[in-house]
Design a protein around this nucleic acid. Structure first.
Lengths: 224, 224
DNA sequence: CTAATATTCAAGTAATCAATTGAATAATAG
DNA sequence: CTATTATTCAATTGATTACTTGAATATTAG
């Protein structure tokens, strides 16, 4: 075997990883999987893809070692194979940031005041939540909330936010979070809340990063 | 703008980064660029690609913000745009590792004893090199050596190794390194040296990682 | 100015990849 | 056993992507 050949083999193996994460739908699937294991059907529903298509993408990711599958009864549960995947995604996000600047600006234009927009750092939130100074609001769907959330967080999915405003306090700051630094749910929640006169901010990044940082996580009883 | 749309935009922007690093040749180019800036021509020669093809790949990477270009006279010098790129590559390598296992095994089968094969950690090498206990051998081509190397390292490109064995000591351990954890140059150098009765080992990873780790770097006078 | 050189651009072809469709597996319930 | 349901597989179609070729651009040297 020539060293030329070997080199090519190695590069193309590594490139495979890039190819696999080089597709929007697969990234979306990975972000959901970063929250916990999911069935094919659940993922298809969350992403809006067809089941067959979802299955194909998962197959590709399993082949390249990014996700794992475990079969239980009729269902196949997929999950991330390695924490390194989270790091890879965050590296990609950081590199994409310059191009996301335009997009971000649009998102931010929803929001009124610029300097109150600064997201609150994780450790600061943890501290203030423990002292009961803030209300932590998880705007993700209930399934995601159930499989892990910031301790003490209230779960109000974005869709229900408008009807459930009564549950939230006016006198205390509300900190919303969702899936990650570019998940728009929290942005929109903050925008809506501010429009209604609440004091609202976003948590920096989202839940997967919170977990990654080793901060405490609370789970609901039921896991699915 | 709907939040659905926005989400898609964000995912596809991030996926672009993946697509760009999802190609063996571009990875190879990035690894060369991790050593320092290079012209299109130089990169084409190093990789064996056509100039036009090299230029195209560089263009793609520049568009996605992974590399930067600076024009000086007739030449365009490319370099990495961000240290995050090194982290991204290393993340990809780590994830590819499971699949590289087969390849690695082949490489290692060149070598005789398995447990003497353990690469020497960077800090240990730094320490032992300072005490003059080891000979550090850089087997990369002279241009790469010139643009930065481990302090005190001797540069003997792999091709010249056989003729220049006299320059190396028998009584002292030799530690070889090249471009990274999967660069085969150092593997082959160690194999050749052992076959000739030298005590030889590899440095863990390679020079880009050494630099990344913040360890001291020495440069030769001439930069090209 | 013209010639030479490094790089980029544009068009064409071949290869690869994504999504859909409908059928095939596999596990469970009745 | 048969029916049902979740998932995967296989084949097709349309869309991207890679590489080559030859021309275009830009910079310098004479």
């Amino acid at each position: 075997m020539s060293s030329q050949n070997l080199k090519q083999q190695i590069y193309s193996q590594v490139a495979r990883i890039g190819k696999v994460v080089g597709h929007g739908h697969r990234l979306e699937l990975l972000e959901y999987l970063a929250q916990g294991e999911r069935t094919v059907e659940a993922l298809a529903k969350l992403t809006g893809l067809s089941v067959a298509n979802t299955s194909q993408h998962l197959r590709v990711m399993r082949h390249s070692g990014l996700v794992e599958a475990r079969k239980n009864g009729l269902y196949v549960y997929y999950s991330l194979a390695d924490d390194e995947v989270v790091r890879l995604l965050s590296s990609m996000r950081r590199l994409a940031e310059s191009h996301l600047a335009d997009v971000d600006r649009l998102v931010r234009s929803y929001l009124t005041v610029k300097d109150e927009l600064e997201p609150i750092p994780r450790v600061e939130l943890l501290d203030r939540a423990r002292r009961g100074l803030v209300t932590v609001l998880d705007v993700r769907p209930p399934e995601e909330f159930a499989s892990g959330h910031v301790p003490g967080a209230v779960n109000v999915p974005l869709k229900e936010l408008e009807e459930r405003l009564k549950e939230l306090p006016h006198e205390q700051e509300i900190v919303a979070y969702c899936r990650g630094p570019h998940c728009v749910l929290a942005f929109e929640a903050v925008a809506q809340l501010r429009a209604k006169g609440f004091q609202a901010r976003r948590l920096e990044d989202g839940f997967p990063e919170w977990r990654e940082a080793g901060l405490p996580v609370e789970k609901s009883a039921k896991n699915h």
